[in-house]
């Protein structure tokens, strides 16, 4: 699904990513750990193709195609979706309209999707206007459900979310990755499994999200390079090490 080869990225003249190699297979969920400032968000922003993130070396392949220099909307249209941590408010644009726009002309039942994240009462509000942390997450998930991406990038799905909302958000992230948002009754289990091709790349600090998703692999991003890439690593084990010994110890251990 996603292949990142020797990716070097500069932000504001400073090299933040210094040679990233990463492969995420179809249907696989990958967890990215790392201390603040290690370049996690930079990696997501670069994958999405935002301005200010300059690729100086290496390339990004998505479904076999080199997308390193494609504009953001082309990446979105090819199936990359992102959940933003601090999305901007757009006045006069209702949440409902934006969810509709995310579907790009496909028929979606906005009300029904909104009910899944208890967001039906927010549909007529301007997008992100005065939304709390948890509301932002639910709004982002709602947009992604309408967008139906095949690779979802989550930047800290648990930040700013209270415990009650965490369960809802966790379950929705899971449903999005499992493609069980809209299981049609006439579909056989085999068909459903075949549909399960959504991949995920999740940044997490706390690891709460691991209670909800089937995370296949994880790695630590530290000072712009991925560590512990020599053997398959369970995200749980990484998290345990980080909480016991901190990031430095973790890197020593896994290298």
């Amino acid at each position: 699904m996603l292949r990142i080869e020797n990716l070097h990225v500069r932000v504001g003249g400073k090299e933040v990513l210094r040679g990233i190699h990463l492969v995420i297979e179809e249907g696989e969920t990958f967890i990215l750990f790392g201390p603040n400032g290690s370049g996690k968000t930079t990696l997501l922003m670069t994958l999405m193709g935002f301005s200010g993130y300059e690729v100086t070396e290496g390339r990004i392949l998505f479904k076999g195609e080199d997308i390193t220099h494609l504009p953001t909307y082309e990446r979105a249209r090819r199936g990359i979706g992102m959940s933003f941590q601090r999305p901007p408010t757009i006045h006069g644009l209702s949440t409902r309209s934006l969810v509709q726009l995310c579907a790009r002309g496909r028929a979606v039942d906005v009300e029904a999707l909104a009910r899944r994240v208890h967001f039906e009462h927010f549909l007529d509000r301007d997008i992100n206007a005065g939304f709390s942390g948890g509301e932002i997450k639910r709004s982002e998930l709602l947009q992604l459900m309408a967008q139906e991406p095949s690779l979802v990038l989550f930047d800290e799905p648990e930040s700013g979310v209270d415990l009650e909302n965490m369960a809802l958000i966790g379950r929705t992230v899971r449903a999005l990755l499992d493609k069980t948002i809209d299981p049609s009754p006439e579909m056989s289990m085999r068909d459903l499994r075949r549909r399960n091709t959504t991949s995920g790349l999740i940044i997490t600090h706390t690891g709460y999200i691991l209670d909800y998703v089937n995370a296949d692999r994880g790695q630590v991003l530290y000072q712009g390079v991925l560590c512990c890439d020599t053997r398959p690593t369970r995200p749980r084990d990484i998290l345990d090490h980080i909480s016991k010994y901190g990031y430095k110890e973790c890197i020593r251990c896994f290298n």
Binding site: F50, S51, T72, Y73, A76, G81, I90, L101, R104, Q147
Partner: peptide, 17 residues
């Protein structure tokens, strides 16, 4: 860029805003 990440091209995004 937020709208472009949802698949709108620059012109569509500007018009929407």
């Amino acid at each position: 860029e937020y709208l472009m990440a949802r698949g709108l091209d620059e012109e569509e995004a500007t018009a929407t805003i």
